[in-house]
Design a protein around this nucleic acid. Structure first.
Lengths: 341, 341
DNA sequence: AAACGCCTCCAAAGCGCTTTGAGTGGCAGG
DNA sequence: CCTGCCACTCAAAGCGCTTTGGAGGCGTTT
């Protein structure tokens, strides 16, 4: 069933039907009712491609799904996506996912945007001086960056968590508990958020005249297995740290396992703080020793980004708030205690 | 940059350009090269909406993302999606996600399909006598069901794991080890896969004259926290089971925690087998006591479904293999041992 | 009575692509 | 020299929608 058929059925012009359906004022209330009813009964849905062609908009936002071969379905990505979905549902948007190898992301975005598949899109997994930002700014399609890119002026729209601050505060907490030897189990070294977290730790330490030994820093995928492996390595080191910071509760899951297996007690022999993205799957309070965390909901971020994107599409001129920097909440639980000895 | 502009630039008709780009034979090799080069240089991409309007196809498959309010970003969904993405990437497809409340799924699919947003789609989270299947069959768009629907003739295209068999075999293994008291921590009670798994357990038990007490069955969301809660309840019961089956390694994560906390030793005091969807996030071999599992890769399922869908789109007449029933692999690790005392 | 304005509705153009049907020019065969 | 055929190219129609620029009818104003 298409517009033409519907118009013939009702003996009205396509114009009128279209207007009636889209809520334009220049149509008789009674006529509109007739149209609405017929549309309902026949199950008519405007063809989205046609609408897009005619209007340039079609109610969809785009995202690139990173597909590194070694990397797997990322729970963090999923949680974020869930936030997007919540918001999209409320506005009858859908989202288009274009999978892409990391080195072809720029290409992928170009494709998505210039083929007119999406009205707006978002960029994530930022690296320092990320070239995608310049590209995005040169394109007419609205976008938002999830995260930021070190080394670039912050003149692009973004939503980010203050990772540096979160990890600085977490480190300060541990310092105040008397800890002196630290380790950091971080995300991939080329990602902006990981770099900022490391900076946060380093700054807090530097303020007390301490520093993070290069050997005490590990960069890895955010999986349970890597968390385990890294922690194992750390525990085997010459000077065992008493305080560990983890970039994710998923990493912490493995890390805690390694700690237990080494016969150490979390919160007594070794303290740990993880960043908590508020994954439904894995709650820090449900760990055997509840985890002290820096928390910030990834899902909320997704929701907010979708919200801003949808607003931008609906309202192209209204200038949006550019920067949004969220503060992670430090929640103290049982995995942090006074430094031993 | 669009076709018209490109044609003016090259002094050729739009027809010729279109043919050159799409590999039709009736164009001079030299001309084709010129066109290809110009397209490359100008960054021309055909508008997807226009192409879809003209051809009826646009290279996208659709899926409904279930958004129950209590349910969260599901790692299983993510893992599956990753498989889809792998395959889509290889064929320059993208996928369109429409989030939907469970009770509006049918509506959501109708919208996605009749608005022409997708060339094909897949259905998942099947329930018994699921009405979506009849609907899908009545629509002209190709689809595949991930899973099956009990109570319906199997005359629709699907890819499923033989859940009943997997759980029957797992149960038999435990029976052979001398276990007599069983518990099942299963997924949501209304989902087909959960029902089949329960049937598998019951059949294996029945063959030895045993049955599963209603109190020994729990249905729950597939999260760490629920796994913990259910196992805790089970352990507090009057007759404590010695063998537990888990619908997911994620559930097992929590369940194992509860077992440890109760001071029991996994594989000795209590045996556990979990279904392993091959989540990268969570490997059964990485549990402190490596988990015995029934394994089947969700990602492979996603890949296969995308493959079949894409074939169906490219090749509408070729009739596809309807049914594909995969066998889960039983992998024995340390979490199963002889029944105690 | 003429003019104006408002309310409804419509015909037609146009979004960017694919595809049909119809030329062109060049060359071999009769 | 004419015809026929091949290789190549083009103009135009059409996909289903939105939107511009009227047009007709009717009540109100001057």
């Amino acid at each position: 069933m298409n517009l033409k058929q519907l118009s013939e059925l009702l003996g009205l012009s396509q114009t009128t039907i279209s207007r009636a359906l889209n809520g334009y004022p220049e149509v008789n209330a009674q006529t509109r009712l007739r149209v609405l009813k017929a549309a309902q009964e026949t199950g008519y849905r405007p063809n989205r491609a046609a609408r897009r062609l005619a209007t340039g908009k079609a109610g969809s936002i785009g995202l690139i799904m990173p597909i590194a071969s070694e990397q797997s379905a990322d729970i963090h990505f999923a949680e974020f996506q869930r936030g997007l979905a919540d918001e999209c549902l409320a506005h009858e948007f859908h989202f288009v996912i274009m999978p892409s190898q990391p080195d072809e992301e720029e290409q992928a975005i170009r494709g998505l945007v210039s083929s007119g598949s999406v009205d707006a899109y978002y960029l994530a997994y930022m690296r320092p001086r990320d070239s995608r930002i310049a590209m995005a700014k040169s394109l007419p399609t609205p976008f938002i960056v999830h995260g930021r890119s070190l080394g670039l002026a912050e003149d692009y729209p973004y939503v980010d968590v203050d990772n540096e601050r979160a990890f600085r505060e977490a480190t300060e907490l541990l310092l105040d508990l008397g800890h002196r030897r630290f380790a950091l189990i971080n995300g991939p070294a080329d990602l902006d958020f990981a770099i900022r977290r490391q900076i946060g730790v380093e700054k807090a330490l530097a303020a007390r005249g301490l520093r993070l030994a290069p050997a005490a820093i590990s960069n890895t995928l955010m999986t349970d297995a890597s968390g385990y492996r890294q922690m194992e390595t750390i525990l085997r080191g010459e000077v065992r740290p008493t305080a560990v910071l983890c970039a994710s509760t998923v990493l912490a899951l493995g890390a805690v396992r390694a700690i237990n297996q080494a016969g150490l007690v979390l919160g007594r022999d070794i303290s740990l703080i993880a960043h908590d993205d508020d994954l439904m799957l894995l709650k820090p309070e449900n760990f055997i020793v509840p985890l002290t965390t820096t928390g910030s909901s990834l899902r909320d971020a997704g929701r907010r980004i979708a919200e801003r994107l949808i607003t931008a599409v609906a309202n192209p001129d209204a200038d949006m708030p550019i920067a949004e920097l969220w503060t992670a909440e430090l929640v103290v639980r049982a995995s942090t205690g006074r430094a031993p000895g």
